[in-house]
Every structure is written in C-alpha cells, then in structure tokens.
Design a binder for these strands. Structure first.
Length: 587
RNA sequence: GCACUUGUAGCUCAAUUGGAUAGAGCAUCUGACUACGGAUCAGAAGGUUAGGGGUUCGACUCCCUUCAAGUGCACCA
C-alpha cells in the first residue's frame, strides 16, 4: 500500500507545503465498524494545516480521491481518514499476487543466520519447558527462511558435567546393569530415572549427616555420594577409560530417546555442537582480552572483566586455578560458531533465567571488538509453570514431553472418532491424523503466546480443540479442501465481479500475509504468525457461512469464490508450516 | 537488598509499536443443520488495562512511584 503513503505525502506537500517522510504517515487497517479498508491517521497533520482534524482529513481525502485511481471513496471521522479501495484494485492484487503459487515466497536476502535451540542436558528426558524451546526455535528458523535468510539450525548438547555424572554414578551403584533393551524403557527416561535416584540418595545422606550435627551447608558438601560424583567428573576430565565408556554408553541411550522425541515434535538440526568438545574453548579469548586490556587479572591469578561502567557487575572469566567457567566456554563457542559459518546473525533460544548471562556475553564480545557481536540475539522466553509452581526434574514435578504428546494424540483421537470424517482411512492413516491434530493443538497452544511471557499450563485441563486453537485452523483448511474437491476445482481464468464486504475483508487478510512474515521475523515471534492465521481462518469461516460457493448466484461468482477458497487454503497451509504444524486434507 | 521481566473480562491470550467505543477464544446464556464439513457461524453478558501521578490533540503502550508475581545476582552450568 505504499502508493497510498506516497500519495498522502504528496497531498500534504501540495496542500500544506510541508515535506513528510513516508514514516510520518500512519497507515492502518480500518476498524470493522467503519467503512473502508485502510485508514490514515491525520491528527499529526493538523499542525501543518492549522485546521480541524475533520477538515484536514477531508482535504487530504479529496486530494487522494482525485489523484489515485484505486481509491474509490473515503470518509472522515475525527482525525481518521478511512479509505475505500476500488474492487478493481483488490481483484488485480488477487490475480497478480495472491492467487499465484509463489505468493509470499521471498527471494534470498543474502544473509545467513544461525538459530541455536533445544540444547538439552543428557541426564534426563525432555519436559514441557524443553518443548516450548524446541517449538520456538524450529518455528523462528522457518520464519527466517520464509523471510529469505539462509538458516543454520544448531543444537548445543550439554553432554558433560556434574549432572551427567550423577546419573552415571547412580546407574553404576543401583542399576544392576539394566539397559533400554533389557527394560524396554526409552533411553532418556532410563537415564533420567537414575538422575532422580541420585538425588534421593543424596538427600538421604544429607539428612543423615545433619542428624550427626552437621549444618545443611556442610552436609551438602560432605555427603559421600556427591564427593563420588565429583571424583567421577575429574576422572572423566582425565580421560579415564572406564568412565568414558560408561559416559558414551549412557549418552547413546539418551540420544536414541531424544531422537524419538524430536521426531514426534517434528524438529531437526543442521549442526550439533557437544559441550564435551567445546568446554575447553575460550582460553585463547581470555588471553586476547588480557592483551587488549579488556580483562584484568587479580592477585590470585583469576581473570575478570569490569562491567560496572555499563551498569553491570564484575564478571569472572577464568578461575584462579586457570580453569574455565561457563562464560569462558560460551565466548569460545560463539567464536567457533562464527568461524564455522560466518553468519550475519546468531540467535540463542534460551530461557529468560539466563538474561543476565547473555547480556554479559554479548557485551564482552562487543568490547573485544568482534565485528559479528552486533548480530547476536538472545531469544529469551518465559518459563512454563504449572498451577503448583515451577517444574523440577529432580522432584518429579514435570510434564514429560513424551507423555504429553501421547495424551494429545489420545485427545485428538477421541474428538476425531466423535466428529471426524475419515471413512476409508487405514489404521496408519488414522494414527498419522491423530498425531497431526494432537500436535497441532499442542504446538498452537504453546506458540500463540508471546515468547517472552511466562506460560501457565494446567495438566488437569486438556488443551482445547475448539475456538482459538490449532485444530480450528486445521479444520478450516480441511473444509476448504473438501469444497474444492467437490467442485473438482482447477484454477480458472480471471473474472470480474462486484465484491461483497466479507470478500474484501478476506482479500485484505490474505494480502497481509507477506508483511506478517516480515513482522514475525523482525520480532522473532511465531505468535505473530499464529494470531494472523487464526484471523485469516476466522474471516474465511465467516465468508463461508455468508456466501454460497458451489451454488453461487452466477458462474463468475462461483469461479471467484473457489479461487478465493483455494488461495486461503494455500496461505493457511504455508503459515501453519512456519509454526511446524501440518494441516490435513480431511479430519 | 540490587537488577531484569511480567501484570489487560472469571480463565487463556490479542491490541498494527502513541491512535477511534481496549478485541478474540474458553466458560455462561440465546439463536442457526431436509446445507458446500456444526471442531462452524450469528448474538448477549462480561473491563477503573494492578493502584496513583505525569508527558500530549490522544496512553494498555512512554516517564516517575507504590503494590503483586517470576527470574537472576557462585572461582555451578
């Protein structure tokens, strides 16, 4: 709609002798209680016109109507100039832009972006919090692709450290050599079981020590089992063969389990990083920082950066014993990623509990003069909470990802058996559909919320399939496909008809798809897409009820409405794909 | 204590980034299937946008302040 903005700039120049920038013209969709499709807010122009808002709007409206042939009419309410565009404009746009198959497919923008997401610990199965992370990361990657970026999806697996040793140790002590094969249990769940077991034993020992008069703090340090775990970590770092063998074996179990969950979630990765391979990175950066005078060394040999001038604290980057900390490792990994891919932007999908960490990380890299530091972005999302509070793996108060997926499939199955139209589906086809609809509901539920907001999930209330939900959009798609099939639709030629208001609304909705992708990419927010596609489906459903398609008044209307339906189905499908949600032909 | 984030209908979320009478869904109530798919549609009811102050033509949005919730403030990751 740039032509309207340009014309408005010209109008203000001609009428009031004032030069405006395109950005000064506020164009927005007209509210549905008023006539028109787009609205210019004319309040800001009154200071140039020195006339009332109504008069200013009317003058600009007259000018535009005479100047721009696509503008069929206008009305002014207070400082709002509502513009009606001619049907010809909408039909041209529909046939030239929206209906063709390449609608909203943008050309490569020449930029490369890395999206790091998932990044699980290999000591326990994935829970709902991880699910949010995975869906967000995957969707943001898809959105950026649609916007023209070349995308690298990365997964930095946290496969080492004390928490991994805890599972390993507990398995060694209490596991009786059981394996996923021997128990039939999914590998990540089996390992997670021992992580919980470790914690139980650890707590028991703490209580015991406390009963002998130790303070809580001392007991936590002195419990034999935690000391053993720390020893094991040292042995791991020293390359102890037996420990390494155990570590590799149990990690393989976990990867096998994660692989299944990832597949069910429909997410994937182009590049895996493993902390066991990256945890020593960053030492050279510490040296570099010392040389550049960005870091400084204290008497005890520890190395720090002083960020107090930036309103932050002093931050340790190397211990006095010369070993790395989390920050060091992340500095090194960031460098490594850039070395591998030379991307223009790099997005970290990580929970908001690490806001401070990333603020510091990016600031340090900028201070070190890394040219690529400005392309770093922390996509910070809110925690998923239960009504009972925070999820805690060790205490078993988590919503397990695999369980949840299975439940969603069950919910979808029940609904489909009740209302679905799936005569002739084979068992495999049915199972696939239950999965598609169940995951549609789950994914939409998690993605429709602004990422940065925390999410409340009540496991006792199943996720809706009606209303503002994934299945609503999926249903809309299936229904359109059904109509098109019945009509034996093939793209026919251009027709000229008078548009009904609801048809104009639907066209407007469709036309907004490209800028919706742009906005979602800019904000790194799948929620923008989710809300858009719901709005689109809603407009279609309204149209569907108001207008007959197969029994339309005349052949031209029928042809047009079929085309409109087809275009809507295509956009729904594409938009849902950006959320990682499939849409069925029937359901 | 300090820092960051959040607070919108009973519940779950929107609000085109400072624009019109703050919009949807769920739940509640009323209506529409001898229909192209009723997982739908039309309507009713529901609000001091946590409270207070300020900035201006205009504030859910920006500033100040109070309150509430969450997170972070390790030579852990």
């Amino acid at each position: 709609m740039d032509f309207i903005i340009e014309a408005a700039v010209k109008a203000v120049k001609t009428l009031y002798q004032t030069e405006l920038n395109a950005a000064d013209v506020n164009l927005q969709p007209t509210r549905k209680e008023f006539e028109g499709q787009v609205t210019i807010v004319t309040f800001p122009f009154t200071k140039f016109s020195r006339k009332s808002p109504e008069q200013t709007g009317t003058e600009i409206g007259e000018f535009l109507k005479n100047e721009v042939k696509e503008i069929a009419g206008f009305n002014v309410i207070k400082g709002f100039l509502n513009i009606s565009l001619a049907d010809g404009y909408w039909l041209d746009k529909f046939y030239n832009e929206i209906l063709p198959d390449d609608f909203a497919t943008s050309k490569p923008n020449g930029k490369k972006v890395m999206v790091e997401y998932s990044s699980p610990n290999t000591n326990k199965p994935l829970h709902l919090g991880h699910v949010r992370n995975n869906l967000l990361g995957y969707s943001v990657a898809e959105i950026l692709k649609a916007e023209g970026y070349e995308v690298v999806k990365a997964n930095l697996v946290n496969d080492r450290g004390i928490h991994i040793c805890k599972s390993m140790l507990a398995w060694q002590k209490f596991g009786n050599s059981e394996t996923p094969e021997s128990t039939g249990e999914k590998g990540d769940h089996l390992v997670g079981k021992y992580y919980v077991l470790f914690d139980k034993e650890y707590k028991k020992q703490i209580d015991e020590l406390k009963s002998f008069g130790q303070t809580e703090e001392d007991a936590k340090k002195n419990a034999p089992i935690i000391k053993e775990a720390q020893e094991m970590l040292q042995q791991w770092e020293a390359g102890n063969e037996e420990v390494i063998r155990l570590w590799k074996m149990m990690n393989l179990w976990v990867y096998d389990g994660f692989g299944k969950t990832y597949e069910a979630l429909g997410v994937n990765f182009d590049k895996f990083y493993y902390e066991s391979e990256t945890y020593l990175l960053g030492k050279d950066i510490v040296e570099e920082g010392l040389e550049k005078g960005v870091f400084f060394e204290k008497e005890d040999g520890s190395v720090w950066i002083d960020l107090t001038a930036d309103g932050l604290d002093q931050k340790l980057v190397r211990r006095s014993d010369g070993t790395s900390v989390y920050m060091t490792q992340d500095l090194g990994t960031a460098q490594e990623k850039y070395k591998n891919f030379h991307m223009d932007e790099s997005i970290y999908v990580v929970g908001n509990e690490q806001d401070y960490h990333f603020k510091v990380l990016f600031l340090i890299l900028a201070k070190l003069g890394k040219s690529w530091a400005k392309g770093l972005y922390h996509l910070s999302y809110g925690m998923v909470d239960l009504p009972s509070g925070k999820m805690k793996s060790r205490e078993g108060t988590v919503v397990d990802a695999d369980d949840l997926i299975a439940e969603m499939e069950q919910t979808a199955k029940a609904e489909i058996e009740k209302n679905g139209k799936i005569d002739g589906f084979g068992e495999l086809e049915k199972a696939e559909l239950y999965h598609t609809v169940g995951m549609g509901a789950l994914k939409y539920f998690l993605l429709k919320v602004d990422p940065k907001k925390r999410l409340l999930f009540d496991p006792n209330e199943s996720i809706d399939l009606q209303g503002h939900t994934g299945p609503y959009v999926q249903y809309s798609h299936a229904r359109i496909r059904s109509v098109l099939k019945k009509a034996d639709y093939r793209q026919s030629e251009t027709v000229k008809i008078d548009l009904a208001p609801i048809e104009r609304d639907l066209l407007f909705s469709l036309a907004q798809y490209p800028e919706t992708i742009t906005q979602a990419a800019k904000e790194h927010s799948p929620a923008v897409i989710a809300n858009y596609v719901y709005e689109l489906a809603k407009n279609y459903n309204k149209f569907y009820h108001e207008k007959k398609i197969l029994q339309a008044e005349d052949e031209s209307s029928k042809a047009f409405r079929l085309q409109l339906s087809s275009a809507t189905a295509k956009v729904i499908k594409k938009a849902m794909k950006l959320l990682g949600i499939e849409v069925p032909e029937r359901m």
